[in-house]
Design a protein around this nucleic acid. Structure first.
Length: 1143
RNA sequence: GGGCUUGUAGCUCAGGUGGUUAGAGCGCUACACUGAUAAUGUAGAGGUCCCUGGUUCGAGUCCAGGCAGGCCCA
């Protein structure tokens, strides 16, 4: 037996296991790389997963995408190295360890040493590695797991150091500050994770102030001072801004507006000082501040005389309107200036102006936001973008700091408020009648100064420290930064050369992010991660950035010489690990002889993964050639959530270090949700176990479903029923097609090499057609893969297999495979089906690597074993094959071929429909089909497929009816597309007129090529293209139409047709009987039937046909039949005896 | 709050450059077929194409504004 045969249903999980074992035994993955040695490479980067948790079904999705394109490029003949990797540092691992040990961050270094803690992290991080490796194999993700890069290894860290040093030398690494949540009472920064603890956000009642910022009159603000002639000269203009933290007002350095938000200039009165003023605020916020007040009626100029303190009514009037963009650049006076006893600061001349802020809304406040860069993250960012300085004051030693110290009180330099607590962080007594909070004191002062427009208590939610219960402060904390803003333009420019899939992620999410780039904050105050390789003197005046272990060792030697260190732990071999605490115990010496201490920060883990193009080869310390060969990547793929993670850090580092992109093509895939569109989570119990899914459905159906069902960048609603459907519909059909092939190829001893190729001219219509469809499929699928659109590739393959190959080609070709001798036609049927199966196998192999391998092996193992293949034509694995270009033979008009087969399918469908309507079974032959068609070309096409149609619908002949018969009833439909372009607004009338066309008019139009009509008194000339003429009916015939196609069926039955019908019925019954009796396809039989006149007549005429179909050596009638079965026909039953003929 | 994204049949999804009767598969109903048979064919039921405006002779498609879900960021 050349081709293995299998019983239904196939166990797809088993196919996966078997093929996996075979791959391992034969080193197929390794061969898929080694056989491409010397070929062009396709560089792929593996985004390292973290193995501290079990892998989920979404990892199968992400890795399927990666695998597909690596396998596809291998098929194209490229060499694709895939080095695996593990991400091992980071907060999630630390939190997991802390949870397991029952400790908090504060306990590290106290209850547990840093050394022990980091050891726990190291053990935890690879805990699920075995599971990951297992899944990688079982899902068929080909990646090199034997030699992965691991981010905690000393070589990897050393590479990161080398890269950091490069950045340092370029001046791109600096120490600055960033605004972070900070707990003054605890004296520590809070992570976002700590801030997300339940109960941290609470309702509090605070004193709030709408402050008045006095506009400086100059050319930029002049537009605010213009106005009607009756204007009271020199009335001051103030910008209004609301804050819930009045203590930040002395730190104000800017005001932010939304550039598209409408603002108004309003004339009114300050309620505390009764001064005439003009104020600026968002138009949308007007009602919140003036709703209770009286608008002065226009056009009478206001006199203000009717306002009195007892009425609490403030008169107001809008003087002008403008947008935020008009306000940007306007200067204003400092609220708490030198004149009031507050200190000067550096950059003051660039402060106190209106800037743009994306975050400004008109939801609350005045639509203008007070900016204090030292006490708000938004503030800090907006100020940085606009080049506005922060208000920093020098302490006694000249060191700059914010106006609030780390304990939460104003620094002494702050004039009358110096030393006051911002909030009650020390728990002092607040019960005294005269007690005022700092916020209240500030508000009172501002009322007196005429700079408060409104002061009120306001309840809002505010975060609190989870340990001290005190309000959190947003406070500047020291951090190390990479100055990504310095290369912003280059980042944007190079991003435009990257092919993003989908495009919108690159231009939108990623592009916008780059546009609003701020410097990359590298610092993390943690323990388990890559340490920052910077040592500094105590006063921060001298520092060194270390770029390698050798350099560190050399510096230690200097330190030993200066007696800062006792000995060199690197030289002695004591220090094998670069993590904390070991690096912290290294002290260096500065050129001036001062001891230097390591900056205790760790670096952002995203630096680790962004450094993988270099660090995976221990570059730049070694392997320069290796690195250069593998940079940049041709392709990477990860979840869309990595946009600002890995995608960014790869890009940023590549641009800064190499002035290059890090990857040329990138796919950002979406999420895997449960079948209802909810996020999967263990807690909700809707998470899908990838291992169970793969073993139950097989890896191929799982992968195929994920890829075919939705495009990878859309979210996938994961439904196991979908996998079942894919399995049944696609894999089941393909399996059946193979089974069919195997069955008859084995029966007839077909061996492809025995028969030379059949010249094209001898090919049957069907063979030509499916072969062309296959070529088109090859072209389409390659195009889709080239465009990184695997979904379209999968769907195209699926359609080909199910609709074209199985349900048309095989169905119509069946008898060619089982009947008669090895004629040219039969040989070519086998050759064609073989080519289709092999072609499909190859095209689908990137998506369904196991099943395609299984099918490929079934198709080729037999022939290969008997030496049918020359050279490397058919390697042992489909994954080692090379994909061919589509073969188009110039002598074959492919378009015509595909067109006419479509006619055949549509006509057949219409005839089936007519048979159904008139209740005539397909088994009953009919005389003829009539097609009313004029078009000679179309007739020619259909004639080429008329045999196929006749066979498919069991009709004797197809005839064409042209118009001259006069039997046709036609209808006409306007061609709106054409008419619309021509007549525009008059289309409705023209269309209506066309639908009323008479038969004569239609005929005139058809014959003369034009028709003159009159519509609403205007003359028009219609051309044939203006309408679509269809045959609607053929009186006296059964007629069906599908668009422009019309089919008429002759349903009259002659005796002969009837007899043939009976003969077919008989064949059918006998075939069923054979099958029920368990006979093999090739068994011969002898049949004896009870006497029945109609049957006898049928056998008389069609005996040979019947005998051949049912493989009967004899077919006789006998008056008495005993011990046999009974065949049921429509109106009668006949006893039958069937015996196997011994050969 | 911002950026991106999705919204079409019960479910999963297609629907170049606008064209009047919006499709497929699954599921459902009925009938037929049956040497591939847990397949297949034919017919049927099932739609405010998220909503509101606008552009146009004509909008699922283009524009604006909403609504709902998702992701990322604040």
């Amino acid at each position: 037996m050349n081709y293995p045969e299998f019983k239904q249903p196939l166990n797809y999980g088993q196919v996966g296991t078997d093929i996996l074992a075979w791959w391992k035994q034969n080193g197929i993955f390794e061969k898929s790389v080694s056989t491409r040695e010397g070929q062009p490479t396709f560089v792929f980067y593996e985004g390292p997963p973290s193995a501290n948790g079990a892998p989920g079904i979404h990892h199968v999705m992400a890795r399927t995408v990666k695998d597909i394109f690596c396998r596809y490029q291998t098929l194209l003949g490229k060499q694709v190295n895939r080095k695996g990797g593990w991400d091992t540092h980071g907060l999630p691992i630390e939190l997991q360890v802390e949870k397991e040990l029952g400790i908090t961050k504060e306990d590290i270094g106290k209850k547990i040493s840093i050394e022990e803690y980091n050891q726990r992290c190291r053990e935890t991080v690879m805990r699920f590695k075995a599971q990951w490796d297992d899944l990688t194999e079982k899902m068929g993700y080909w990646v090199d797991l034997d030699d992965p890069y691991i981010t905690f290894e000393p070589e990897y860290i050393e590479s990161c150091w080398a890269l950091l040093k490069k950045l340092y030398d370029k001046g791109l690494l600096y120490k600055g500050y960033t605004i972070q949540p900070y707990s003054p009472a605890a004296g520590t920064g809070l992570s976002s994770h700590e801030l997300n603890q339940p109960g941290t956000y609470r309702d509090v009642k605070d004193t709030t102030v709408v402050a008045q910022f006095k506009v400086k009159r100059d050319e930029k603000s002049e537009k605010l001072f213009g106005g009607p002639s009756w204007l009271i000269e020199n009335t001051d203009v103030f910008i209004l801004a609301w804050t819930t933290t009045p203590w930040t007002l002395p730190a104000n350095t800017a005001l932010a507006v939304g550039k598209n938000i409408p603002y108004v200039l309003v004339r009114t009165i300050n309620p505390y000082t009764k001064q005439y003023i003009r104020v600026v605020l968002a138009k949308a916020r007007l009602k919140s501040y003036f709703s209770d007040y009286t608008e002065i009626g226009k056009p009478t100029p206001p006199t203000y005389s009717d306002w009195g303190s007892e009425t609490r009514q403030i008169p107001w009037e809008i003087e002008a309107e403008f947008t935020g963009a008009d306000l940007v650049g306007v200067n204003y006076e400092r609220l708490f200036g030198h004149d009031k006893g507050f200190p000067a600061f550096e950059g003051e001349e660039r402060a106190f102006r209106v800037i743009n802020g994306d975050f400004v809304t008109t939801e609350d406040g005045t639509g203008i936001v007070h900016i204090s860069p030292t006490f708000g993250a938004d503030d800090f960012r907006a100020a940085q973008l606009a080049g506005v300085p922060a208000l920093l004051v020098a302490d006694d030693e000249g060191k700059l700091g914010p106006i609030v110290d780390r304990t939460g009180r104003y620094v002494p330099q702050m004039g009358e408020f110096g030393g006051r607590w911002v909030k009650n962080y020390d728990g002092h007594d607040q019960s005294g009648a005269d007690y005022k909070t700092l916020d209240e004191s500030i508000a009172i002062r501002m009322k007196g100064d005429g700079t408060a427009f409104k002061v009120e208590k306001y309840e809002h939610t505010y975060p609190h420290c989870w340990r001290t219960d005190k309000p959190v402060l947003y406070y500047p904390l020291d951090s190390w930064f990479i100055k990504t803003t310095a290369v912003k333009d280059r980042l944007i420019e190079l991003n435009k050369t990257i092919n993003w899939q989908p495009e919108s992620t690159g231009t939108g999410r990623f592009g916008n992010w780059l546009e609003n780039l701020v410097d990359w904050n590298l610092s993390r105050s943690r323990y388990w991660g890559t340490p920052l390789p910077i040592w500094r003197t105590q006063d921060g005046t001298e520092e060194i950035c270390i770029g390698s272990i050798a350099e560190l060792s050399a510096e230690i030697d200097k330190a030993v010489a200066a007696e800062v260190m006792t000995h060199n732990p690197i030289a002695t071999g004591e220090m094998k690990d670069l993590h904390r605490p070991y690096v912290d115990d290294v002290f260096l010496v500065s050129p001036s002889g001062q001891p230097m201490y390591r900056e205790t920060d760790l670096i952002d883990v995203w630096f680790d993964s962004g450094a993988m193009p270099y660090a995976q080869w221990h570059y730049p310390l070694e392997n320069k050639a290796q690195f250069e060969k593998n940079f940049p990547a041709d392709f990477i793929a990860e979840g869309v959530d990595q946009t600002r993670g890995w995608f960014f850090t790869l890009h940023a580092l590549a641009v800064m270090l190499e002035d290059s992109v890090a990857y040329k093509n990138v796919m950002a895939n979406g999420l895997v949700l449960d079948k209802n569109g909810n996020k999967m989570s263990k807690r909700l119990g809707n998470a899908i176990d990838p291992f169970q899914t793969i073993s139950q459905f097989g890896p191929d159906a799982t992968r195929w479903y994920m890829i075919a069902n939705a495009q990878p960048w859309d979210n996938l609603k994961f439904d196991l029923n979908g996998i079942t459907e894919v399995q049944r519909r696609f894999f089941g059909t393909l399996f059946n097609t193979y089974s069919f092939y195997a069955l008859y190829a084995n029966l007839s001893g077909y061996e492809s090499e025995k028969y030379p190729s059949i010249p094209l001219v001898e090919w049957s219509e069907l063979d030509l057609w499916i072969f062309n469809r296959l070529q088109k499929l090859i072209e389409d699928v390659r195009g889709h893969f080239d465009n990184y659109d695997p979904t379209k590739a999968a769907r195209a393959i699926q359609d080909f297999v199910v609709d074209h190959l199985s349900n048309w080609y095989v169905r119509l070709s069946r008898r060619r495979f089982w009947q008669g001798e090895m004629t040219t036609d039969k040989i070519n049927a086998f050759k064609t089906l073989e080519a289709c199966l092999l072609g499909v196998t190859q095209l689908m192999s990137p998506i369904a690597p196991f099943f395609s391998e299984w099918l490929y092996k079934n198709m080729t193992d037999g022939p290969r074993a008997r030496g049918a293949y020359q050279g490397n034509l058919m390697p042992e694995s489909v994954h080692l094959t090379r994909i061919k270009d589509a073969q188009w033979d110039p002598s074959v008009d492919s378009k015509s071929l595909l067109d006419r087969m479509e006619y055949a399918q549509r006509i057949s469908s219409l005839v089936h429909s007519l048979r159904k309507k008139s209740g005539i079974k397909v088994r009953q032959p009919l005389k003829q089909i009539l097609l009313p068609i004029d078009d000679k070309g179309k007739i020619g096409l259909i004639k080429l497929v008329s045999d196929l149609i006749c066979a498919e619908v069991n009709v004797k002949s197809i005839d064409f009816l042209d118009d001259t018969s006069g039997m046709l009833v036609k209808s006409v439909k306007p061609n709106f597309k054409r008419l619309g372009q021509q007549y525009g607004p008059k289309l409705k009338a023209v269309g209506a007129r066309i639908q009323q066309m008479s038969a004569e008019e239609i005929s005139t139009l058809e014959k003369t090529g034009q028709l003159a009509v009159e519509i609403d008194g205007e003359a028009y000339t219609l051309a044939p293209d203006d309408v679509e003429i269809r045959t609607q009916d053929l009186p006296g015939w059964l007629v069906a139409t599908d668009g422009p196609l019309t089919v008429a069926l002759d349903v009259t039955l002659t005796d002969e047709l009837r007899q043939e019908g009976v003969a077919r019925e008989l064949v059918n019954r006998l075939q069923n009987l054979r099958k029920d009796s368990g006979l093999e396809v090739q068994d011969k039989i002898r049949v004896t039937l009870g006497q029945q006149p109609e049957l006898q007549a049928a056998v008389q005429s069609f005996g040979d046909y019947i005998r051949e179909e049912v493989q009967a050596l004899s077919l006789d009638f006998a008056p008495e039949i005993s011990g046999g079965s009974v065949l049921e026909f429509d109106e009668y039953s006949v006893p039958v005896q069937l015996e196997v003929a011994t050969a």
